[in-house]
């Protein structure tokens, strides 16, 4: 059982890291603010979600797993809204 959980964690974290890598590449390579933001927010949201999913399999109990989930949800909310705020600032020429 624990070997299966370890395998799941490894796969999810590697998949999550791939999205982080893709997002970082987009942040460095895309030409304008909006595309860079697009790459970053999408990748971070999905990447963090996969890593949290992987780590939930290692959590000592349901409470710890729920805490991890809450961290992801809060990061999701603040990431999405920060993305919107930066995009609006860029659109209005304040970026």
């Amino acid at each position: 059982m624990s070997a299966l959980a370890d395998l799941f964690t490894g796969a999810m974290v590697v998949a999550g890291l791939f999205f982080f890598l893709a997002g970082t590449a987009g942040l460095l390579r895309f030409p304008d603010t909006l595309s860079r933001l697009h790459a970053l927010t999408k990748a971070d949201t999905l990447g963090l979600g996969l890593i949290v999913l992987g780590l939930m399999a290692q959590a000592p109990g349901p409470l710890a797993a729920l805490k991890l989930l809450a961290i992801w949800l809060i990061a999701l909310l603040s990431g999405a809204i920060a993305g919107q705020l930066i995009a609006r600032a860029a659109r209005d020429g304040r970026g």
Binding site: I74, L77, S78, I81, Q84, L85, R88
Partner: peptide, 15 residues
């Protein structure tokens, strides 16, 4: 204030 910020200011403080 921009609408997304107002949304965040309504959702986040209780948490």
């Amino acid at each position: 204030p921009s609408p997304p910020l107002r949304l965040l200011a309504r959702l986040l403080p209780p948490v």
